[in-house]
Design a protein around this nucleic acid. Structure first.
Length: 461
RNA sequence: GUCCCCUUCGUCUAGCCUGGUCCAGGACACCGGCCUUUCACGCCGGCGACACGGGUUCGAAUCCCGUAGGGGACGCCA
């Protein structure tokens, strides 16, 4: 039997990292088993469902390279099916009409709570036949009256609960719409889902859903309830996939980092999607919840920035540069800059922040740096530097390095005395890549112009 | 309140099933050093955990029981 796994988010919000991890594990398992990965949108919440969220979810999965093999399937397209199934259960006596009002139920819940009992429906209408004609009603499913229900879970192991914990829950509201715990089961049956992989907040639902499978005459699928992730909501608003994309994280890093929340493979930290799909299995999924750690996420991202093909990284960088108003495209120069800068940043945004001076000379000189490294007595040396750079035969790092050393000797200056003023002139501060590489990455004219500006503005009294 | 689940360094985790090789390994973060024309990167080193209490056993992070703490679920939401 082939594996069919589904990711079933509701379209009431953007795709958050917790959900993304669930999607990822479904995807990885399906791929690992040569099965099918399906997207189903649970859009039955009339109030909060929105198309733009559906689009965002699809867009996010695409970006992460986790496109579904089937779907999206929408539950709102399937209301007729749900209605038929409920009618069928009603006819078979496996479900019944309940005429209690929400107020009555609320009162009962309160009472039970206070008495220290589990707040559950009494089953009052389960066997009553004195149905009023003109009252609104809901449909409830009959839960077994005695015994236990056991979930065999790939992550949690066997979990058993006494049926006394369960009540006859509503499967059709008084407005005629079906409820979640019912439609999931109908959908999973119709979609021939073999493995239900979701957050462990659904573990308790599973005990309700298993009797539904049975009422429908179906075998429940295999379940895998993943431990939850803490610390997501606290992240001030930036918790959706596209938020992290905008922050300059790479999809490879999102996938890599998320895979390690709850799953592991020995001491290995870095995984490509291919490695993940071949290594993934529920044997290596832990049971305890984890915390989202942005520091480590950034580290994983920085590793991916170093691993990507240079031109690929440059290409992905361009949109961020354009966002800042720098009209660039991928060419040899941008690739050289990427090469020089990428190991100094952990996100594409950080990379942009660190690199602005390559694209604009509109920056302030760092005051402390100027004070420490620039004094008028350096003027002749810097003038000579600009001059000799202007006429240097070859424009590359080695040749430039040689020139700096020569000048150092001639003027009897340490390398720093020439290097730091150069940095200040080119970048505004003293932190940058190797000066020789730095200089070589700029055009000769640009270097001379910026050096001249230093001479005029900072070395001339 | 009731039920379910969880508990190894600050964080992610290896080890646990198949007790000894674990005075517990790796990674992030942090601290120190090296490299060096600066800042990073990199390299080297350091700090740092088996929640607690009972058992079982020659021996327990590993098995059993209990306690505490944390999370989840208890909707005419999904």
């Amino acid at each position: 039997m082939s594996v069919r796994a589904r990711f079933a988010p509701s379209n009431t919000g953007y795709l958050h990292m917790g959900n993304t991890r669930t999607a990822l594990f479904n995807f990885l398992f399906a791929r690992n088993q040569k099965g099918t990965f399906i997207l189903r949108v649970e859009d039955t919440d009339q109030q909060r469902s929105e198309d733009r969220y559906t689009e965002a979810i699809i867009d996010a999965l695409q970006w992460l390279n986790m496109e579904p093999d089937e779907g999206p399937i929408f539950q709102t397209d399937r209301f007729d099916t749900y209605g038929e199934k409920i009618d069928q259960l009603l006819e078979e006596g496996k479900a019944y009409k309940c005429f209690c009002t929400p107020e009555e139920l609320e009162a009962q819940r309160q009472e039970a709570q206070e008495a220290g009992r589990k707040p559950k429906y009494s089953g009052e209408w389960r066997d009553r036949t004195d149905h009023p004609d003109d009252q609104p009603f809901v449909v409830r499913i009959k839960m077994p009256l005695e015994g236990t229900i056991t979930v065999k879970d790939l992550v949690q192991g066997e979990v058993t609960v006494n049926v006394e914990e369960l009540d006859d829950f509503i499967i059709r509201r008084s407005d005629g719409t079906p409820t979640y715990n019912f439609v999931v089961v109908v959908d999973d049956v119709d979609m021939d889902i073999s493995h239900v992989i979701r957050g462990s907040d659904h573990l308790n639902n599973t005990f309700r859903q298993i009797p539904v499978y049975r009422a429908l005459g179906q075998q429940p699928p295999t379940f895998a309830h993943l431990p939850l992730i803490d610390g997501l909501s606290k992240r001030k608003g930036s918790a959706s996939v596209q938020d992290y994309r905008d922050l300059g994280f790479l999809p490879e890093a999102v996938v890599n980092y998320l895979s390690r929340l709850g799953w592991s493979h020995g001491d290995q930290e870095l995984f490509s999607m291919d490695e993940l799909t071949s290594l993934f299995g529920f044997d290596s999924v832990g049971r305890s919840p984890s915390t989202f750690d942005e520091d480590k996420f950034r580290w994983v991202n920085s590793e991916w920035m170093k691993r990507l093909e240079l031109s690929d990284l440059a290409e992905r960088w361009v949109p961020f540069l354009k966002d800042r108003g720098f009209d660039v495209e991928v060419d040899d120069n941008l690739i050289a800059i990427t090469d020089l800068m990428r190991e100094r940043a952990d996100t594409l945004v950080a990379l942009t922040d660190e690199s602005t001076y390559f694209f604009s000379d509109d920056f302030e000189y760092n005051e402390k740096a100027v004070k420490k490294w620039l004094s008028p007595d350096l003027k002749p040396a810097v003038e000579a530097l600009a001059d000799r750079l202007q006429s240097l035969e070859e424009w590359n790092s080695d040749a430039i390095g040689t020139l700096y050393r020569e000048l150092g000797k001639e003027f009897d200056l340490g390398l720093a005395k020439l290097a730091q003023p150069t940095r200040i002139g080119l970048t505004g501060s003293t932190s940058s890549p190797s000066v020789f590489d730095l200089v070589a990455t700029f055009s000769r004219d640009e270097v001379v112009v910026r050096l001249q500006k230093v001479i005029d503005e900072l070395l001339t009294e």
